[in-house]
Design a protein around this nucleic acid. Structure first.
Lengths: 205, 205
DNA sequence: TGTACATCAGTGAACGCGCGTTCACTGATGTAC
DNA sequence: TGTACATCAGTGAACGCGCGTTCACTGATGTAC
């Protein structure tokens, strides 16, 4: 991703891409504005033509992540039709797939310490993303007898927490803890057991 | 935690305590050897009398964390007797309680990027801690009909993932996402639903 | 089509900063006789 | 009890480093006439 002449042509994109690669590689700690600039073949000062600074660059990376994330979840949700249950499970799989495929984005979104309120754009993207999961949960909740139905936000939170936990603990090599099972299996079986507990899967299925 | 005279007296402990406070406050990124030394009222160079450097100091903090963590889990497990189910649930609660009460340790253990293999001491402490949860899961597994019993490590992983996810997403103010529910309730209900899905709680309980 | 000029997107030098680490040192403590 | 001395646990100055950010600048691009 080196520039051609004096003008880069697509520096903004190149900087975000570089930042994502660095974040993926070294974590949000290891990411450096200067290094991202160097990767794009550009002086650190050039970054300030496109971003307000280091944090702003990370925020943009996170925003793009939420955008992609929301699209993927949306797609998975629609694709999972006609059964609400299937749609919900598809969302779970999409979550993990996203974390695997876009690790830089994932880290920027959830581990970089960037506040979600930082930019209206970022906030909007994040809200949209979470909305998808909540919508899936709501629709699913309709199938639970009303008297023992937990609030939909609650189990969307449960699923999100389990997904995030699987990603952080088992889908990365991070804490030296080798996963005893493939993360995909772990998450899918976990969600399966959880949904059975909600009475959404018959005991014999 | 300022020193009295030329000799501090308990510098090693003071440094770890300072490091924990800083990690808790600013995240593992914000932690600085120099600042930890400053807090202890000591020159940065003095740190090298007790640790091999910055990383080694974090590793020691993490080690202490796993030690405390294992003790707490052990205690919760024993206290939860005589029912295996109650013991297991107690472990879940203990997990969250630990994360809440020792946030610096928690971050050092799980978010600092310190490899668990770094020191034999650290590795041993971590192994012991995870062993408790696995033991609880094994005992619980005995109550599930053998033909549909998942491997115990699997659901100890599920519970761990959900716990960790709740901590990261909802028990801290981190991603600007206000938790819709108290984390304790969220985790307890999540584990409850999960255990019901395993057939360990009767549907009408 | 050609020229003048405004705007844009870079440069590169400089800044102050705090970091982690090293080194020879020295003050305080503890121990042997 | 007193003295000599080894050991220990700090000091403080220095290092090289890369960082984020600023500034006046300049080369390239695009537009008006």
């Amino acid at each position: 991703m080196a520039k051609k002449g004096y003008h880069h042509g697509d520096l903004k994109r190149a900087l975000v891409d570089g930042a994502l690669r660095l974040i993926e590689e070294k974590g949000p700690t290891g990411f450096t504005l200067s290094e991202a600039a160097r990767e794009a073949g550009v002086t650190p000062a050039a970054v300030y033509r496109h971003f307000d600074g280091r944090e702003d660059l990370i925020a943009e990376a996170a925003r793009q992540g939420f955008e992609i994330f929301a699209d993927l979840m949306d797609y998975a949700y629609d694709k999972g039709q006609p059964s609400a249950l299937a749609a919900f499970e598809a969302c779970g799989r999409a979550y993990l797939a996203f974390a695997r495929k876009y690790p830089g984005h994932y880290v920027a979104m959830f581990e970089s310490g960037i506040g979600i309120q930082r930019t209206p754009d970022l906030h909007a993207a994040a809200t949209r993303a979470m909305g998808v999961l909540e919508r899936a949960a709501e629709e699913l909740a309709a199938h639970i007898p009303a008297d023992r139905r937990p609030p939909p936000q609650m189990f969307s939170a449960h699923i999100w927490a389990m997904s995030h936990g699987v990603v952080e603990l088992f889908a990365r090599g991070s804490p030296g803890t080798r996963s005893p099972f493939p993360p995909e299996d772990l998450l899918e079986s976990g969600i399966g057991i959880y949904l059975r507990g909600l009475g959404l899967i018959r005991p014999d299925e």
